[in-house]
């Protein structure tokens, strides 16, 4: 793409990333969560793929990173699910909630309140797991399609 698009994408990229991670991390307080935040982060990566040349951007965003993100997210989700069994409850039981001193373990007041990030038990951790998985998965889809377009020489001048 042109230099204007590249400069604008470089400028917008950190804000998109910060907004995406904010949505993931505040999933138990505000609207949104892992899926939505992961989609926003993947949109930022797609913006970089669209704005820059393939041979430059594929040196920074490697396929292995997205592969690891996707697999690690799903494994993290399942691990937190089985941790419930390990602590004597059922699969995906919220074993971290309402334990003072535990990470994300503070109790929350009933009714409308300002919200406390340090609540929710395993919900924020599951949010992070799903967010990491979705960002890896959606980026990997874009990466596969773009690699196909570049390797097969469809619009080689535009893509490469």
């Amino acid at each position: 793409m042109s230099k204007i698009v590249r400069a604008a994408a470089d400028f917008l990229y950190p804000f998109v990333m910060i907004f995406g991670f904010y949505i993931v991390l505040h999933g138990h307080l505000t609207p949104g969560g892992g899926f939505q935040g992961g989609a926003v982060i993947a949109t930022g990566i797609a913006l970089m793929f669209a704005a820059h040349r393939y041979r430059e951007i594929s040196l920074i965003f490697k396929k292995a990173i997205f592969n690891v993100c996707e697999t690690f997210g799903l494994l993290m989700f399942i691990t937190f699910g089985f941790a419930g069994i390990f602590f004597g409850k059922s699969f995906l039981y919220n074993w971290m909630v309402n334990i003072p001193g535990m990470l994300f373990g503070e109790a929350v007041a009933y009714g409308q309140n300002a919200g406390n990030l340090n609540t929710g038990g395993i919900i924020p951790l599951l949010n992070i797991a799903v967010g990491v998985e979705v960002l890896g998965a959606l980026s990997l889809i874009i990466y596969y399609m773009l690699t196909y377009v570049v390797k097969m020489g469809v619009n080689k001048e535009d893509a490469s």
């Binding site: 995906l92 373990g105 919900i123």
Partner: peptide, 27 residues
């Protein structure tokens, strides 16, 4: 709020009361 510690009831349902559904979506 009391059982899941989450202010967002939608997230409480999706990630706690029906966490198995979310695991299926991720899969």
């Amino acid at each position: 709020q009391e059982q899941t510690g989450a202010n967002n009831v939608v997230t409480a349902v999706v990630f706690d009361f029906r966490g198995f559904d979310t695991l299926g979506e991720a899969t």
